[in-house]
Amino acid sequence: MPLRDTIKIMVVDDMTISRQLITMGLDKMGVKNVVPMPGPQAALKALETTPVHLIISDYNMPGMDGLEFLLALRKSERTRKVGFIMVTGEHDPVVADLGKRLGMHNYLKKPFNDVGLKNCIEAVTGPL
């Protein structure tokens, strides 16, 4: 079975449209298990019962930004090792650096196309 059939990816973004753009892209790649979440708090709650392999999260979100979300993930035993890709509007070296230190697996700059998304994921997971 190819990885795209088994991998479970959670997409976290407060903006419906950006979230749908990512889930749509994943859908086109043939990824079967995609869990969309409207924000970090909801995602953390869902992760208590539904573990995933990889989280693709926006950086710019109300309440808790992508880095805070990542920190929260790393602090919990259950999600400590989950894969994490951050999507951001622009490259901010400070964010990238902090992300890296928190074990962020990859970094995707908006706007991106389906190929960019795929490359970004495959750099982390290997071929889908």
Partner: peptide, 18 residues
Amino acid sequence: PAAAAEPAPAEPAPAKAS
């Protein structure tokens, strides 16, 4: 500090967030 975030909201443990 450069994390551009108030430290406080970063604090809650995941379970606590809800």
